[in-house]
Each structure stands twice: as structure tokens, then as C-alpha cells.
Computed example of a mutant assay.
Amino acid sequence: MNASTHKPVLIVTGNDLAPEALEMLRDFEIVYAGRTPTESDLVTLCSAHKPTAIIVRYGKINARVMDACGGQLQVISKHGSGIDVIDQSAAAERGIAVRAAAGANAAAVAEHTWALILACANSVPQLDGRMRAGHWDKSTHKSLELAGRTIGLVGLGAIGRRVAAAASAFDMRVLAHDPYAKEAPDGVSLVGLDDLFASADIVSLHCPLTDENRQMINAATLARFKRGAILVNTARGGLIDEVALAAALSNGQLLAAGLDSFDVEPMPSPHVFQGLSNAILSPHIGGVSDAAYVNMGKGAAANVLAVVDSHAHSAA
């Protein structure tokens, strides 16, 4: 008999984990679900393997997937910080712990946020396309200079604070809205959401998606933005009413938007954003850097070990 059959099973909803994470999880039998696991795929895998733990990279974990584990599942651990893909109420009802690798990809997401801000402010993709088509737009182009401008951050967690620090280095005024923040770093002013929307030249989203803030960026809120503002989203696509955003980009209410996440992922094609030259798009890769891949894997593994160890001690 293979000794691995005696190990507890851990399902990874993806194709791989960082070697450093696999070393931490050497006492588990690792089963990979693939890069695009459907609900049915996960139910079948969980029914067959009865996992003790699931590390979530792709896809969603709902009650049906949890119940397929036959009561063995102790922890659902996110390979990253966004646990909205896990049905947290269903997990709580079943006594299953839900954990996030908080902060593991903060540097990567903050850096990508700035890549999108600068690309929007300086028209980087558009100018590159024009150059490749044989144009030289020096006499007609003007970038949006950031020094002296105001950036508004919705969410002041690990990512938002890094974005704020860089904004200060750019000599920007920094506003933030975060109902859970008890204090703000030097140079950051906590304000109400309406004040932030009305005052900011750049609005950048860094909050989790909840039932309360779904489509917080909509026709009504976009109308409160300064005309010609920039919107950047490296958080969750569900925060934005995409039809309303497309209208604001088309009619000049917004100068540009830098978007790394979408209401439906992968983003459907065709999509209204594909026809808007002032929408700069990336495929939810803000947290996917060389270092973040390792950090998220190790963080997810550590969360699995902490919960499973606690179960073992309480059982003993």
C-alpha cells in the first residue's frame, strides 16, 4: 500500500504551488484540481478524496463542494487575500475555518496599481500603439502630471497603505476612506466616501467585495467624480457597474480607467471595455509576481497547518 494514502488530503484549485509551500505541506497528499475547475469538477474531486483542507487559487467554493468532503474538511485557505470566492456563511454553519493569506501579495498589487495609474495618466498603451502605427504625437499629447494632484484610496489595508506611501513620494495629496481604519499614516486624511469621490483626481479601489459595497461605483457615484478623473481597480470587479463605467469613459466624465479585475472572469469577449481606448485592461494579475507567488503559497500553507494543528490538539 502506498504510504501517501495514510496522509490527509489537500486539494489545490489550480495546477501548482510554490515549492516552498509544498515543503511545508509534505505531510499532506496534494491533489490538483486544474486551472479552471468547475463546481462539478470540485464536487467530484472532494467526493473521491474527502479532503481535510482546500487551498483556493481559482474557482469558487460553495456549500455543495463543502458537503462533498464528507465532513472531513477543516479549513478552506485562500491563495491570496480575497475570500469572496468562498461561501463564508456556509463554511461557518459547517464549522469549517476560512483563512486568507493577508498581505502576502500586497507589494505586487500596490506596484501594479501604480503601473495602471501611470499608464492612465501618461497614455502609455495608446502612445505605444500610435508609435507602432508610424505616428509622432509630441506636439499634441499632454500627460496628466501627478504632483500636486489628489488620490483617493477606497480601503486602507496593507495594499492601500503601500499605494499611499508611493503617492506621498509623488508629492500627491492622499485621501482615504476605510470604515475599519482607526488611524491613518502620516500624510493621509481619512474622509467620507462622497468627499473622496468629489475631491480625487484619481480614485483607486483597495477594499474587499461585500454585499454592502457591490457596484459601489455606479452611474450615481460616477456623476460625483471630478470630470476627467481616473479610476483604478485592482480589487474586485463586482465593485463596479461596468455598463455605467463604460458610459463615463465614453462621455468624458472619466479620463481613463485602469482595470485588473472584472465582474465576470475571465472577462467575456466581446466586452464593452474592448472598444474603449481609454480603458487599460489586465487579466487580474496584480497579485501575480515572482515573490507574491511564493508568499501566497507559504501563507496559504501556514493557515492550513495552523487550523489542522489546532484540530489535532483539541482532539487529543
Score class of each variant (00 low, 15 high):
H313M: 07
K182G: 12
L281A: 03
A219G: 12
Q215A: 15
P266F: 04
A256F: 06
S289C: 01
M24N: 07
G287A: 02
H79M: 07
S123T: 14
A181D: 09
V56F: 08
I217Q: 01
V85H: 11
G252K: 06
S310C: 09
R130H: 09
S189M: 12
H135W: 09
A48E: 06
S310H: 13
L116N: 05
R132T: 09
L118P: 03
D67S: 14
E111W: 03
T36A: 13
L231G: 00
S139F: 08
V264I: 13
V163C: 04
S139D: 15
H313V: 14
A110G: 07
L196Q: 04
H79G: 02
N122C: 15
K298R: 15
G187I: 05
N2W: 07
L17E: 03
R130Y: 14
A300H: 00
K298Y: 01
A115Q: 07
R130C: 08
A176Q: 03
V191E: 04
S47H: 08
A184H: 04
N218Y: 10
S89G: 09
S199K: 14
S123R: 15
A169I: 13
D87K: 07
Q274K: 08
E93L: 09
H135Y: 13
A248F: 06
G238Y: 08
D186N: 10
L10Y: 05
A90E: 06
V65G: 02
I11N: 02
G157Y: 04
A200E: 07
A235G: 05
T52C: 11
G148T: 10
L255T: 13
K7Y: 13
S189C: 07
G187K: 11
L231D: 00
A256S: 14
G59C: 10
S4F: 07
S89W: 04
G14V: 10
D263W: 07
A3N: 12
E212Q: 15
L17S: 02
G238V: 08
K60Q: 14
D27K: 14
L144R: 02
L118E: 04
H284Y: 11
V174Q: 06
S261N: 10
V304A: 11
N15W: 05
S123Q: 15
M131D: 04
V43G: 09
L118S: 08
A302S: 15
A306I: 06
N303M: 03
V43C: 12
I159L: 11
R35V: 05
R227T: 15
A291D: 01
A102T: 11
A246W: 02
L116A: 10
H271Y: 10
A235I: 01
I285P: 00
A315W: 08
R149F: 14
E183K: 12
T140Q: 12
I285H: 02
L245A: 07
I55V: 14
L231N: 01
Y32P: 02
R64L: 07
L17M: 10
S89H: 07
I117V: 12
T150Y: 09
V243A: 15
A306Q: 13
A200R: 04
A97H: 09
A164Y: 03
